[in-house]
Design a protein around this nucleic acid. Structure first.
Length: 346
DNA sequence: GATCCGTGGCA
DNA sequence: TTGCCAAGGAT
């Protein structure tokens, strides 16, 4: 067992490690995040789903609005998907919103909130990390977590080779998490791990001088803190073309709901057509934008067709005052609002 | 195991 | 401007 070896060779034992993390969290950790007050399993579920791959400062206003509109899991379970997507718009990774909605319906139907790792991981949108986080934060119970913060912290503490996603590294990280996670004070311990990663053991310019684990950090001992974790080998980001239609009729704008898979799933957008679409042969380009996704770059052109657009049940006409209350992708919303402002001035 | 899935902040 | 990064999960 490699993880056992790692821990055996390390100057800090598991008990001492937990004590240091817990003590530091109490003195120096974050205590004023919105989901840390009057904790319920539902609030933990909402916050954890929102926080997946998303920064705390981005999530906070979304979380506040969400709890106002859906104060309980039953309220969310009974909501329409349109409204769920509208509240989530701009936050990205829209499958999370559908999963959260489905999770609320499953839990409400079940009658009780699951409180064990196995059952939690059967719920849509909840993986190994989120299940551990729910046990730790909602129930103050044993729930190992490995996220980006913990990965960075452990890779440095134990000078672990490998990059994020490599199976052998992930296996080591989870084994360490299981061994280092205490049986008591689990909420504070988990919060301490995340706070250390977010405020001291950061990706760039880590603040080792104030770290309670400095004496036990193997990367620090080598003066190679920023070499861990190793950078994932990167490949070129592809570029894709997108063609969107700008069609107004009697002051209303034609929009189309996207399918529930793929990019911008379940959101409304300007109708998108293939590059070979006949409509584009006699259309005028009225604008363009470039948008960076995590895995490709979108070069979009917006066309004003001269012919009638064939409508489907997924199409709809929207007045400008309705736009605030529907779910649009951020770059599409930005372009539409700019266009409407210009045409109003013209 | 590799890829897909968003967005905003920051150096 | 560009690249990197952030409380991951599903396929």
């Amino acid at each position: 067992m490699q993880g056992t070896d790692l821990l055996d060779k390390h100057p800090l034992g598991a008990g001492q490690f937990a004590e240091l993390v817990i003590g530091w969290q109490q003195q120096q950790g974050r205590h004023d995040l919105p989901w840390q007050h009057e904790i319920t399993p539902y609030k933990v579920l909402v916050s954890e789903l929102m926080l997946q791959q998303t920064q705390v400062t981005t999530v906070i206003p979304y979380f506040e609005r969400w709890l106002q509109r859906f104060p309980t899991i039953e309220a969310l379970a009974e909501a329409e998907q349109d409204e769920v997507m509208t509240l989530w718009q701009g936050l990205g990774y829209y499958a999370r919103a559908r999963n959260l909605h489905k999770a609320a319906q499953a839990i409400a139907k079940r009658g009780s909130f699951p409180a064990d790792l196995e059952t939690l991981q059967q719920i849509p949108g909840i993986g190994r990390y989120t299940a551990g986080a729910i046990l730790s934060f909602a129930y103050d119970a044993y729930g190992p977590i490995v996220d980006g913060n913990v990965r960075r912290l452990f890779c440095r503490l134990f000078a672990l080779e490998g990059y994020a996603g490599q199976s052998q590294l992930e296996k080591q990280l989870w084994q360490l998490a299981e061994q280092l996670t205490p049986q008591q004070h689990n909420r504070r311990f988990a919060q301490g791990l995340l706070d250390l990663g977010a405020t001291l053991c950061t990706a760039r310019r880590p603040d080792c001088a104030n770290c309670p684990l400095q004496a036990g950090c193997q990367a620090y001992a080598r003066q190679q803190v920023e070499q861990f974790p190793m950078a994932k080998p990167k490949k070129a980001k592809p570029s894709r073309q997108g063609h969107f239609l700008w069609v107004q009729q009697q002051g209303r704008l034609l929009l189309e709901q996207r399918p529930d898979q793929g990019i911008w799933s379940s959101l409304l957008t300007l109708p998108e057509v293939a590059a070979e679409h006949p409509l584009l042969q006699q259309a005028e380009p009225v604008g363009s934008f470039r948008h960076q996704f995590s895995h490709y770059q979108l070069d979009a052109t917006i066309w004003q067709p001269q012919q009638q657009v064939e409508e489907t049940p997924r199409h709809g006409w929207y007045a400008s005052r309705q736009l605030a209350d529907i779910a649009l992708p951020a770059p599409i919303r930005k372009w539409i609002e700019q266009q409407l402002k210009q045409s109003a001035v013209d």
